[in-house]
Amino acid sequence: MGIALLLVRQLERWFELMGAEYAYMATDRSNEASLRLFTARCGYSKFRTPSLLVHPVHSHRLRAPRRATVVRLGARDAERLYRSRFAHVEFFPADIGDVLDNALSRGTFLAIVDKGGYEWRGVDRFLSSPPASWAVASAWDCGGVFRLEVRGASRLRRAAAAATRALDRVVKWLRVPSVPDFFRPFAGWFVYGLGGDGRDAAVAAEALFASIVNMARGAAAAVAVEVAALDPLRSRIPHWRCLSCAEDLWCMKRLGGHADGWDWARSAPGRSIFVDPREV
């Protein structure tokens, strides 16, 4: 038995001791060795294929759709909205209140697109009479837990990236697509709890993501969000393809002590997922 297989089995035993019914893993679809281990030898099923969309943080502000109005929600209003509208979404955390209260959570934001001039008057009114189109999302500071670094880049690439940043700082109005300093340890922010409703919900989601990218200036080098393959909001999320992962793959397995009844690991995918930022 190889060390990787032994490690997976030991983890599964610990999961069961902790009361878990399922185990899941995430990898890139091109990681053939990982897929062989989990699907062929450990009995995992290919479960979901979300996309990780990443946008760098520039010195200039990212433009947001003017039709959208963005408001910041208090933690309790955000919790009520999430529990009311997203409790059925896959991977929704039962302790969402603790997530929102965490020191690494940078706030929850609601974007509204409504020709009638909808005005935010609290979560009760929103739930009883929502606007025509809206989207909600929260921001998480991953830099408080870990930092990333790109290594192996040539001096020429580093110099070219530095030149774009210098130009962006001096003439922000040019909106230069500058490359952040990924070549030293940097922080990233993660957008979680993204969801919405209405014909222009994707426009609202674009406004939310742009607002969070702008808020991250000076605190992070990039902002990422993970969206389901069928999520209608993904079409308007600004991102750089070279930084994103369009073919992430999640695999899942039902653990041994729960062999009867419906198997979530073999269920059809929903339109959206709720990625717990504590698991990023």
Rank of each mutant, 00 (worst) to 15 (best):
M1I: 12
G2K: 08
G2N: 13
I3H: 14
I3M: 13
L6T: 01
L7D: 02
E12V: 02
F15R: 13
E16Q: 14
G19A: 06
G19Y: 08
E21Y: 14
Y22I: 08
T27S: 15
D28P: 00
D28C: 03
N31C: 03
N31M: 08
N31H: 14
E32G: 06
F38Y: 15
R41Q: 12
G43S: 12
Y44K: 07
S45H: 15
S45F: 14
K46M: 11
F47E: 08
F47M: 10
V54I: 15
H58W: 10
P65A: 04
R66E: 15
T69E: 13
L73N: 08
A75K: 14
R76P: 02
R76L: 13
D77I: 08
A78K: 15
E79M: 13
E79V: 08
E79A: 14
F86C: 09
E90Q: 09
F91T: 01
F92K: 09
A94W: 10
I96V: 15
I96H: 02
I96P: 00
G97P: 08
L100D: 00
L104R: 04
R106P: 00
G107E: 09
T108M: 11
K115C: 02
G116V: 03
G116D: 01
R121W: 05
D124E: 14
D124R: 15
D124G: 05
L127N: 06
S128Y: 02
S128K: 06
S129M: 11
P130A: 10
P131C: 07
A132E: 15
A132T: 03
W134S: 05
G143T: 05
V145Q: 04
V145I: 13
L148K: 04
E149D: 03
G152L: 11
G152Q: 14
A153N: 02
S154A: 10
R157D: 09
R157E: 07
A159G: 09
A161W: 09
A161K: 08
A162T: 08
A163N: 04
T164V: 12
R165Y: 10
A166P: 01
K172I: 03
L174V: 11
R175S: 14
P177E: 07
F182K: 05
R184T: 15
R184N: 01
A187W: 00
G188D: 00
Y192I: 04
G195M: 11
G196I: 05
G198A: 09
D200C: 06
A201Y: 07
V203D: 04
A204S: 05
A204M: 07
A205R: 11
A205Y: 10
A205T: 10
E206P: 01
A207E: 00
F209C: 05
S211N: 13
V213P: 01
M215G: 01
A216I: 00
A219I: 01
A220H: 01
A221Q: 11
A221V: 08
V227R: 03
L230M: 03
D231E: 13
D231Y: 05
R236W: 06
R236Y: 07
I237G: 02
C242H: 07
L243W: 13
C245G: 09
D248C: 09
D248K: 14
C251T: 12
M252F: 15
K253F: 11
R254V: 07
L255D: 02
G256Q: 13
A259L: 10
G261V: 11
G261Y: 13
W264H: 04
R266F: 09
S267K: 08
A268S: 07
S272D: 06
I273S: 02
P277A: 10
V280N: 12
